[in-house]
Design a protein around this nucleic acid. Structure first.
Lengths: 199, 199
DNA sequence: TGTACTATACCGACCAGTTGGTATGCCAGA
DNA sequence: TCTGGCATACCAACTGGTCGGTATAGTACA
């Protein structure tokens, strides 16, 4: 596939920006078209419906998100705990970029559409599982190296990572202060450190 | 003030239920009225506009939330750490009730309305600060009793509490599994324990 | 000349908000 | 005790703009 020759990508990007700030239901198709500099006919050539766009956006957004982590050198560390810390630092870096700074499309869709759009709920759940799956093996390995086991397991701790990420977005939106995002993730990192170093 | 003789409360409750599941923009005024068994004229007698209802709902919801914690015996403990653990257990209890099980109105509004409704954003931010303020002094006291100080302060740790709460809701909506809610909060509790017991 | 795509005008359902009205309770004056 | 004025609470029908989606007539290029 060559570079984007069509308006499809433009529409996806425009929709992503608008929906990150207002959510899916409040974002109107006409508005997306205007922002993309594209007409409505073109929109409905590329997408069956507004819901269809939502499904496409989940893919689009998730791909960009994973791409943002490619090339990050966090995997290089020998020690699993160090890998986890480096990964969290990489996340903090991505939080400053356009993909997370103004919200997370997956989280926003989860709140707005989960109960009315079962297929979308499932799509989001899958992507969430993949995100959690990135950090989980390293946390598990780090926990195994611990002398004393606490009541915390790798699965809960890695889900917690995503929960903190999503919650941090909610708080930063409410406060209007993007710095809160990184602060929450740093706090999670320190708490993980406390868990891994407790003995 | 006597018992509710008007439809105002009924409308607020109906709107709360609908908006917890679909969010504000997707919930239609007609729908609220139908759910409340009330006509539209009555709605616009009690509320100036749909946005006005949102503002009233923030109050309504927050009051119910704080009321749900009244009578909880977590303040009784001498040890500040024990107070924190008991408070978190109380939160886990409230998470099973109707106020949090299907979402949090403040979080949902924060994502959907923060960027378009500055006054609502501010109202939510205030309530969030109050919620964080409930746990913060006890965490601070517990941290002071610690032998060695880590890089974690009471402010960050108490904000983290709210972030985990909000994030847990996003995850539970995506998974369709309400049990995730309590699991996240229990994980936070154990992580706090690790922080407080690390030496 | 066909394929891939774009532009414009339009439709019908929907939806926030309005209007004009009714029922009820309360209080003042005769 | 009747009466009339007034405020509160509520209702049903309506309005005008909005929004998701469509129909159709194109254009650029192979």
């Amino acid at each position: 596939m060559p570079e984007q020759t069509t308006h499809r990508e433009t529409l996806l990007d425009a929709a992503q920006g608008l929906m990150l700030s207002k959510g899916f239901p409040a974002t109107k198709v006409d508005e997306i078209c205007k922002a993309a500099g594209v007409t409505k006919g073109s929109f409905y050539y590329h997408f069956e419906s507004k819901d269809d766009l939502a499904r496409a956006l989940i893919d689009h957004y998730f791909n960009r998100l994973t791409k943002a982590f490619e090339g990050e050198p966090w995997m290089a560390f020998e020690d699993p705990a160090e890998r986890v810390y480096a990964l969290l630092d990489a996340v903090i870096g991505v939080m400053k970029g356009p993909l997370l700074k103004h919200g997370c499309l997956l989280g926003s869709f989860a709140l707005d559409l989960s109960e009315t759009h079962p297929d979308i709920r499932r799509a989001i759940d899958e992507r969430f599982a993949k995100l959690v799956g990135v950090i989980e093996p390293h946390l598990r390995a780090a926990l195994k190296k611990k002398p004393k086991q606490s009541g915390i397991n790798a699965k809960a701790l890695s889900s917690q990572f995503l929960a903190v990420l999503q919650g941090a977005i909610v708080l930063s939106k409410a406060s209007g202060d993007h710095a809160q995002l990184a602060a929450s993730m740093r706090c999670y990192k320190e708490m993980v450190r406390a868990v891994l170093e407790s003995n």
